[in-house]
Design a binder for these strands. Structure first.
Lengths: 223, 223
DNA sequence: TAAAATATGATAGTATTACTATTATATTTG
DNA sequence: CAAATATAATAGTAATACTATCATATTTTA
């Protein structure tokens, strides 16, 4: 079955010129993702990206204020995409517990299939999010940028899943902490699996990260 | 009762000249912590630190290779200090469950009292770790630096607590994931409390972060 | 106590980064 | 065809992240 062709709309505050509206814009975003993955966010520069895509530094600056804003754009794109899949996957599931389980699976599993929703390679983007996303908000400007709504999509995802938790157990008092712990934790554990394996545990069969976080949530909220 | 005067020994790989051995070295570390907290790690430079402590950029470079290595040094110091307190606090507790509860409290609570163990202000250091520590290992060089043992103290803390989990439930298969989730999560939640409160939950009485993580662990490993 | 060793400070210099500004050229649109 | 817009090329600036050299001050030790 073919997926619905959707279009992820990003808040216009995050860019100077919408990268969706031109070929150059799309190349900036696509190759930007690959290049950040290759070099790491610190060593990545617009000058290098310009050289890579056969364009010029100054042209890239017309799309994004700086590389930090490109990262914030990518973060927003990622969570918008997750939110879309979350809403889609949990729609018309009447049993609260089933709904929650589906959500947890979606939030903690690895992307395998190329569910190409746009010109962006979601697998590459997820790799970037796992390694670099914390740098988008561990900055001195976080309060200011939070005010401007840069992180609202992420917060909305946490809110949505938090509501699913409360459908299963309306008396559980820490639903937001639980959900943000799971979401951040799942990414962190993927990073540890790759780079600091002694901080994780392996499973012979199945995905231990999905199993671990699903188990934690269900036991914690008392099922 | 007075605390035992201890001395936190840091692997000599992490510095060029031991900052413990001179007045200048101590000022670099102390004022370095404050300055990173004030400016954020990105805007922090050795030149600014030199000006602040009435010394010279080039002198600071004789202690630390670069600001990244200063951060790694501080991370190592922090986890050595946590490990010391952890071992101290859980010694001679025979009941595995009590031991684990003490450890969880220690790992998730906030430092209030100045438990000054050395010239370093632990409260300021904890603030730095909460905001900046992920930048110490979210780098392109992580595998190389992990090989060199830069993160071994942190891994040892996870291992120690993981063993306490297994004392309570020897069949629990994800002890490392559980402990690293709790440790990282507790710091993350402190950060969220301060900057992104909608990702957390408040408590009228008591410390919700301690309660939340203690609850999660005990329910998950089945007590 | 003088000589040697060591620690610190001051200055200068380099390549790169993170931009901004200007101008030229190519492409699209009205 | 003219006007508007997008992109490219170039140059320039202040700051960063260093390295190197030399002078001076302090400590060690023979």
């Amino acid at each position: 079955m073919k997926r619905l062709p959707i279009y992820i709309v990003i808040d216009s505050e995050l860019y100077l010129k919408d990268p969706n509206t031109s070929d150059l814009g799309k190349r900036i975003v696509c190759e930007g993702i690959n290049m950040i993955n290759d070099l790491g966010f610190e060593a990545f520069t617009f000058k290098k990206l310009g050289a890579q895509i056969g364009s010029n530094e100054s042209s890239i600056y017309r799309y994004f204020e700086n590389k930090h804003m490109l990262l914030v754009y990518l973060l927003c794109w990622y969570w918008s995409w997750v939110e879309y899949r979350l809403v889609f996957a949990t729609q018309n599931i009447s049993q609260p517990l089933d709904k929650l389980k589906i959500a947890l699976q979606l939030l903690t599993e690895r992307i395998d299939i190329d569910q190409a929703v746009s010109f962006i390679d979601e697998k590459q983007l997820e790799r970037l999010i796992i390694s670099e996303s914390s740098k988008a908000y561990h900055t001195k400007e976080i309060d200011e940028e939070n005010e401007k709504g840069y992180f609202k999509v992420y917060k909305r995802v946490v809110q949505r899943v938090s509501e699913m938790v409360l459908l299963v157990n309306p008396n559980y008092p820490y639903s937001h902490m639980l959900v943000s712990t799971v979401i951040e934790g799942a990414h962190q554990q993927r990073f540890f699996q790759r780079h600091l394996p002694s901080l994780t545990d392996k499973d012979s069969k199945g995905d231990s990260i999905v199993k671990f976080y699903t188990d934690i949530v269900l036991k914690t909220i008392g099922n």
